[in-house]
Simulated assay, not measured.
Amino acid sequence: MHPVIQKTLGGLSTQYYFRQFFFGLAVATFVFFMSAQGDRSMSAGMLFFTVVSTFLYPYSRFVYESIVGFIMGENVFFVNAIFMMISKFVTMAMCWVFAIFVAPIGLAYLYYHHSKAER
């Protein structure tokens, strides 16, 4: 595999990538389900966006979790479970929708991190 691809797309652990990919598929499934409810079918552009967002979602989520981890540190908050599940779903949906914009930041960081580790 090409070193650039290995350092970027292969930069996340397999377990983390597939876990986040599963949740990205869940969001994509919801989008497909909602688009099937109307009279019109999903456009080719929307289909392309859905596929790209699903594959980039793990990198987008990586950026989100890194930022939240930096801001929150090791603090633990005890909140209502329903509130927590709703906020998790909202952040997952936002990471999926904006994955095409946010994921390149994660890919650039992974490339930098793995290049630095090589030296």
Rank of each mutant, 00 (worst) to 15 (best):
Ser87Trp: 03
Ser66Glu: 10
Tyr109Glu: 08
Phe70Thr: 12
Ile67Asp: 15
Met46Asp: 07
Met92Ala: 11
Ser115Glu: 11
Thr8Tyr: 02
Phe49Glu: 05
Thr14Lys: 08
Phe30Thr: 06
Phe78Ile: 08
His114Lys: 15
Val79Met: 02
Lys7Phe: 09
Ser35Ala: 12
Leu25Val: 12
Glu65Leu: 09
Ile67Tyr: 09
Ser35Lys: 12
Ser43Pro: 06
Cys95Glu: 02
Ser13Ile: 03
Lys7Asn: 05
Tyr16Val: 08
Phe62Ser: 01
Val52Ile: 05
Ser66Lys: 13
Phe55Ala: 11
His113Ala: 14
Ala26Pro: 03
Ser41Phe: 10
Arg19His: 10
Phe48Val: 05
Gly69Ile: 12
Ala26Gly: 06
Phe83Lys: 03
Ile105Ala: 13
Phe48Glu: 05
Met92Asp: 14
Glu118Lys: 06
Phe22Asn: 04
Glu65His: 04
Leu12Gln: 00
Val79Tyr: 00
Met94Leu: 10
Ala103Glu: 00
Leu12Gly: 00
Phe83Cys: 03
Phe89Glu: 03
Ala28Tyr: 02
Val51Asp: 08
Phe55Ser: 03
Thr50Asp: 09
Ser115Trp: 07
Ser60Ile: 02
Lys7Ile: 09
Phe32Lys: 09
Ser35Asp: 09
Ala99Gln: 01
Ser53Leu: 04
Met85Thr: 11
Gly106Ala: 11
Thr14Asp: 12
Ser13Trp: 03
Pro104Cys: 05
Val51Cys: 14
Met46Trp: 14
Gly24Cys: 07
Ile82Leu: 08
Arg61Cys: 08
Arg61Tyr: 04
Val31Gln: 02
Val97Asn: 03
Ile86Met: 13
Gly24Glu: 01
Met46Cys: 08
Phe18Leu: 10
Tyr64His: 10
Ser87Lys: 10
Pro104Lys: 06
Leu9Phe: 06
Phe77Ile: 12
Trp96Pro: 00
Pro104His: 05
Gly11Ala: 12
Phe18Pro: 02
Gln15Asp: 12
Ser35Arg: 06
Gly10Leu: 06
Ala99Ile: 02
Phe62Thr: 01
Thr54Val: 04
Leu47Pro: 01
Ala108Ile: 11
Gln6Lys: 11
Pro104Tyr: 07
Ala36Glu: 07
Phe89Trp: 04
Ser60Gly: 11
Tyr64Leu: 14
Tyr57Gln: 01
Gly11Cys: 15
Phe70Cys: 10
Gly73Pro: 04
Phe55Asp: 01
Ser53Glu: 02
Asn80Lys: 01
Ser35Gly: 11
Gln15Glu: 15
Ile105Val: 14
Ser66Ala: 12
Arg40Trp: 05
Ala81Lys: 07
Tyr57Leu: 07
Ser87Gly: 14
Phe32Gln: 15
His2Glu: 10
Phe23Glu: 02
Val79Trp: 00
Ser35Cys: 11
Val97Leu: 13
Thr91Arg: 10
Ser115Asp: 10
Trp96Gln: 01
Val90Asn: 05
Phe21Gln: 03
Leu107Met: 14
Pro3Leu: 13
Arg119His: 10
Ser43Thr: 13
Val31Phe: 08
Phe55Met: 14
Gln6Leu: 08
Gln20Pro: 02
Ile105His: 03
Arg61Phe: 11
Gly45Met: 14
